[in-house]
Amino acid sequence: RQVTVQRKEKDFEGMLEYYKDDEALLVKTLITDFKPNTVTATVPCLPAYILFMCIRHADYINDDQKVESLLTSTINGIKKVLKKNNDDFEVTSFWLANSSRLLHCLKQYSGDEVFMTQNTAKQNEHCLKNFDLAEYRQVLSDLSIQIYQQLIKVAEGIIQPMIVSAMLESESIPSLAGVKPMGYRNRSSSMDTDGGGPSSYTLEALIRQLGQFHGIMRDQGLDPEIVGQVVRQLFHCVNAVTLNNLLLRKDVCSWSNGMQLRYNTSQMEEWLRGNNLYQSKAAATLEPIIQAAQLLQVKKKTSQDAEAICSLCTALNTQQIVKILNLYTPLNEFEERVTVSFIRNIQNRLQERNDPPQLLVDTKHTFPVLFPYTPSALSLETLHIPASLGLDFLIRV
């Protein structure tokens, strides 16, 4: 079985044969004991392709039990890894990429014509011959959703403690440093001289963290559509936590903080553009805090000002607009507070909107996740398995 005969690639059929007794070893080597960083220099989602090539061989020899057993062990193995690494972004992202890739493979090689339109002739030859795995596709889709939810939970847990200080408290515009509303100057300056406690994250640190998440997901070959959905969900979290704090804290409702917040949101938008994520709908989730920042900056005196505010603040509800106007704190003795009659004017204008009464944003709101079908251009017969993976018990067929 260990005799290796040099064969040309065209002789391979893109399948991997294994002995039934080796199934547990396969799952242990490729899933439960697997370290994602051992395959950084190979084809993205290598474990998914290897598993699929094993499934193909079991299908080819018409062994339904072997197919079912491998798929069940694979799914249970992935669940086990996720449970053990439930706070690890890299491992969770890796298995999201691989389960969704395995799901795509089960579709691409199912023999269903809807999934074959982009296949090469060779890929069509590699379609499953004997079994319809539609029910297992459903299980893998459910599993992928579970992994996605875990990934969001892990990422949110990392960025949540950074959001308030990065978006509302750190001073990323140098010229604005020290310009704070009356009576709040000390709070910020004492934080700066602390030398950075656990709560003093800068905007740069938050963006760097988002960059790390993005880099990991991209390098692991997670579908760009899924990456976009993760980023959108994290941007929703940034928006919700920032806005909720703004709505409860008088000290951040000032003209200069509006300027700071507008700058910070523009940096976030810039990050999306720089990473080709602007189409991901993530930018739209920032609209409420962009409008809140503008609301802090615009004039709030005349009836025309009231009209302008109402047409500007479409992503904030009446309660939120009124609350920000009430909290607005003048920067110095030359600036006036927002008058009661101005706020009434706004309320009258917004009456017809019938906005919901909730003041705070639901930070836990989750957008429904979708895994659009993404076939691969890879030819299975060309797949190279590095010897370092310790899978020499698999026989290329």
């Binding site: 798929l71 023999g111 011959k129 079994f131 319809d132 029910e135 297992y136 299980v139 579970q146």
Partner: peptide
């Protein structure tokens, strides 16, 4: 291309059922 012959549908348990089976298997093993 020749039309392929119909494939046999392999019935799969749900994700939750798979987990239950897995747990009971682990309990049985020493």
């Amino acid at each position: 291309r020749l039309p392929s012959r119909p494939r046999i549908l392999l019935k799969a348990p749900t994700l939750a059922e798979m987990e239950e089976m897995n747990i009971s298997e682990e309990e049985e093993s020493p």
